[in-house]
């Protein structure tokens, strides 16, 4: 048994203290947000630390329940999460499968064509004008179509398809299955981990994306959750909460803000355990050269 020197012990203590501090730095804001969201007027306005609400009020959540524009935005976000992810996964698989075949003609050229979109982009204004010419500006379709073609996801998918033994596919082909049927029946079931990883990347991106709404959608009924949150949190506007005036004990803007945060991060927190499992793997997959 090697006894630790005084210096080593000091190092150990320092290590654990610094890491514990970083945990607290991230954990405390959550506690604070949760506490303020359940606080009554006086408590929410009190300066200082908030670990738990000293006097509880559910008024902020009552207001949120009635905030129709927030819930409509929630609906729009769920819409883009589901449809956007399904559409992006489809395009990713359709692009990656043919390009993963060594015998596919001109595959290197096609791959370069796709990879180039990672390096160069038209930018905000040309994208705006394109959506305008396609006449889909200011529709929910914007949220879907702009994220369907993702070169990086295609790259990760190709890497994965290539790792599947050829014999499996050949067996299916000899049995007379078409390419599409082989992909659907034989190959896809094997790629569930990578489909889950890329799917979760898409889900999180769609849940948190705010830029495409700000730039290309101005119709309030089509706003996504992050856009409404931006109004509430950053622009400090409470137009989403129409009933404040009717309330006997109106909650403070702070409680409303914090309650909106809690309501909007709940789906992410529910997905988090799954995300941890697949994302950590995904980062490693992504680092494999295509």
């Amino acid at each position: 048994m090697i006894t630790k020197s005084r210096g080593e012990k000091f190092f150990d203590v320092l290590l654990y203290v610094v890491l514990a501090c970083s945990v607290v730095m991230i954990f405390y804001p959550f506690l604070h947000v949760l506490s303020i969201s359940f606080s009554d007027r006086g408590e929410a306005l009190r300066a200082g630390f908030h670990f738990y609400p000293r006097s509880v009020s559910l008024e902020a959540y009552a207001q949120i329940l009635d905030a129709t524009s927030l819930w409509r935005a929630y609906g729009n976000t769920l819409f883009r999460m589901v449809l956007g992810t399904a559409a992006a996964l489809t395009v990713t698989i359709l692009a990656a499968y043919p390009l993963s075949k060594s015998y596919f003609p001109l595959k290197r050229m096609f791959l370069l064509l796709i990879l180039f979109t990672m390096l160069f982009e038209g930018g905000i204004i040309p994208t705006y004008l394109l959506l305008k010419e396609l006449d889909i500006l200011n529709t929910r379709g914007v949220y879907i179509v702009l994220h369907m073609a993702n070169a990086f996801h295609v790259l990760v998918m190709i890497t994965f398809f290539r790792s599947i033994p050829r014999e499996l596919e050949e067996a299916a082909r000899i049995d007379g299955a078409s390419e599409l049927k082989t992909l659907y029946r034989v190959i896809l079931p094997l790629t569930i981990p990578v489909v889950a990883t890329i799917g979760l990347w898409n889900l999180v991106a769609h849940l948190n994306m705010f830029m495409d709404n700000l730039l290309y959608v101005t119709d309030r009924s089509k706003f996504v959750l992050q856009q409404i949150l931006q109004e509430i949190l950053i622009e400090d506007r409470q137009d989403s909460f129409a009933d404040i005036a009717l309330s006997e004990e109106p909650p403070t803007p702070e409680s409303l803000k914090m309650a909106s945060i809690i309501v909007s991060i709940t789906p992410m927190l529910l997905l988090y355990p799954f995300m941890l499992r697949y994302f950590e793997k995904g980062v490693m997959v992504g680092s494999v050269k295509g």
Binding site: F120, E121, G122, I125, T127, L129, L130, L146, A149
Partner: peptide
């Protein structure tokens, strides 16, 4: 949606 904006 990738090359279109480049053309723009």
């Amino acid at each position: 949606f990738r090359y279109g904006p480049m053309y723009g």
